[in-house]
Simulated scan of single mutants.
Amino acid sequence: MSISTFAKKLSTAAIAATAIVLGIGAVAQATVLTFDDIPPIQDSDLIPNGYGGFNWDNFYYLNGSQDNISLSGYDNGRVSGDYVAFNGSGDPALVSDGIFDFNSAYLTAVWNNGLSVTVEGFKSGATLYSKTVVVDTTQPTLVNFDYFGIDELRFKSFGGVEPDYLAGKGMGTQFALDNFTFNEKATSVPEPTLLPALLSIATFSAGSVLRRKQLKQS
């Protein structure tokens, strides 16, 4: 191997090692919350704070396979297991934690076809993301959000029309939520002023090794 080729490989390895130490390019492990591993209940109950590492505000869970809610979004919105989450009384609901990435979730209208659901992502009170989707009662809709580096999610649902086949079963602007997928921590990136210095150290180290190799060959 020529000295020039060795130098290129050594520099590349040094920079890659620095990147690994800094966490550059590291991919956080995705976690899926199915709401099936919370203690089972007969009717519905608040999702306990701490589930999945989050604080839950006005989010409930229930068994969607119950006969009295068949054909509703509670039933049709089940993706994994029997349990789904929903926003109590159709009112706004929140999920909060330290910094996290919100990847995706399945949303289903419970009573109204054509239900609009707006999902906002915040960091330190500032709105970073907002997306509104329209969902029906007949099947869950997978929504890829890709909200990175947030600390709070706010869900708000409105509109839609109750279909004839659900008349008399229930009413409201509730939506069912299942398979809430997130990254436990957002990928960390080093401070811009710190990166050049660390790369310089890596390059200097690579140069030192190369000089030692040249001396041995002389």
Rank of each mutant, 00 (worst) to 15 (best):
N103G: 08
W56T: 03
V32A: 10
I24C: 03
L128W: 01
K8Q: 13
P196C: 07
F148S: 12
D97G: 04
N179M: 07
L107V: 15
A186S: 15
W111E: 09
V110D: 06
K8H: 03
G23W: 04
K8I: 12
W56M: 02
D101F: 06
T137W: 04
N179P: 05
V143R: 08
S44Q: 12
G149D: 14
V95L: 03
A167C: 01
L22G: 03
R154E: 13
P92I: 08
T132V: 02
V119R: 07
N68V: 12
A13P: 00
L62Y: 00
E152W: 02
R211H: 07
A93Q: 11
D97V: 00
N144D: 15
A26Q: 13
L22S: 02
V27R: 06
G121W: 06
N183V: 00
G73R: 07
Y129P: 05
G207F: 14
S96W: 02
K213S: 14
S96H: 07
T138K: 13
S130N: 12
S200A: 15
A206I: 08
T5K: 13
N58K: 14
T181K: 15
S104R: 15
A186I: 01
T18Y: 01
K9S: 09
T203V: 14
K216T: 13
A167Q: 13
G149Y: 04
A167I: 06
Q29S: 09
F175V: 09
Y83C: 12
D136G: 14
N55R: 11
L194S: 14
T132D: 09
I47F: 01
I47R: 01
T173D: 15
G77C: 03
R211L: 15
T18M: 12
S218L: 14
E162F: 00
D75E: 06
P39E: 12
V95I: 11
T118L: 07
T141P: 00
A167E: 13
S44E: 10
I38P: 04
V117I: 15
G207Y: 12
S44P: 00
S2M: 00
N49D: 15
A202M: 03
T132C: 08
F175L: 12
V135C: 09
D67A: 11
M1V: 04
N58Q: 14
D75V: 00
P92V: 11
G25L: 09
L215V: 11
Y106K: 08
P190N: 06
A206N: 05
L71F: 06
I47D: 00
S124P: 00
S96Y: 05
T5G: 10
V135F: 06
V27H: 05
S157R: 08
A28P: 02
E184F: 04
L46P: 00
T31L: 03
S205W: 03
D164C: 00
S130W: 04
S188D: 09
L199S: 10
G53K: 02
K123E: 12
S205N: 11
G149H: 05
A16S: 13
Q139A: 15
G168W: 11
L46C: 00
G73E: 07
Y51W: 04
V143M: 08
Q42D: 14
L128C: 03
V143H: 08
A19V: 00
